[in-house]
């Protein structure tokens, strides 16, 4: 199973016949394993990494440091879950250090993010403060460089 996962980690689109050939198993078996992994939520999904700005669509990304008042029995979990369910929110992490949650929000404009913070995030019971940082330019995203494709510089035939 872990071999299958590492094959898909950096390329979710590897064709089934290729996976089957590499793992020396049938396509049917691989498909069954994938279903199991999806059902157990080990595979959470298959996103596409897109450079939206290059595609001509404006996107603004904010990294928001959030401080919370922990609640009896559940600590930060209930509020974190509540924040996570907003569509605008891309990621939520509990952090050590000067703040509690790192919330990453993606929207089409600065105004939309400002609205989200002011009207939704900051007003949640238990959120004591927020501090936003706006992303200016990505250089690397989830393990992938954002620059142009590197080409093969090798000679066509060599000894």
């Amino acid at each position: 199973m872990n071999e299958l996962l590492s094959l898909l980690e950096h390329d979710a689109r590897r064709p089934l016949p290729e996976l089957a050939a590499i793992l020396k198993r049938s396509e049917y078996e691989i498909e069954k394993d994938l279903k199991t992994l999806e059902n157990e939520r080990i595979i959470l999904g298959y996103n596409t990494l897109i450079d939206w700005n290059k595609a001509g669509t404006d996107k603004v990304t904010a990294f928001i440091e959030v401080n919370l008042t922990p609640q009896r029995d559940v600590g930060f979990d209930a509020i974190a879950d509540r924040i996570s369910r907003f569509d605008e929110v891309r990621s939520v992490y509990l952090m050590s250090g000067n703040f509690d949650l790192l919330v990453i929000v993606e929207e089409s404009s600065l105004q939309a993010i400002a609205d989200f913070i002011a009207q939704r995030l900051a007003t949640i019971d238990g959120v004591t403060s927020t501090r936003s940082h706006f992303m200016l330019r990505p250089y690397k995203k989830d393990g992938l460089l954002t620059g142009p494709k590197e080409r093969d510089h090798r000679l066509v035939v060599s000894p």
Partner: peptide, 26 residues
């Protein structure tokens, strides 16, 4: 002379060649 050279010259001219002729890591 090296027997490899001749192939290199022809292949280098081609557009969509897929090379299994390279003796070095990709």
């Amino acid at each position: 002379p090296s027997g490899i050279r001749k192939f290199f010259d022809i292949a280098a001219e081609m557009e969509d060649v897929i090379s299994l002729g390279v003796g070095e890591p990709d």
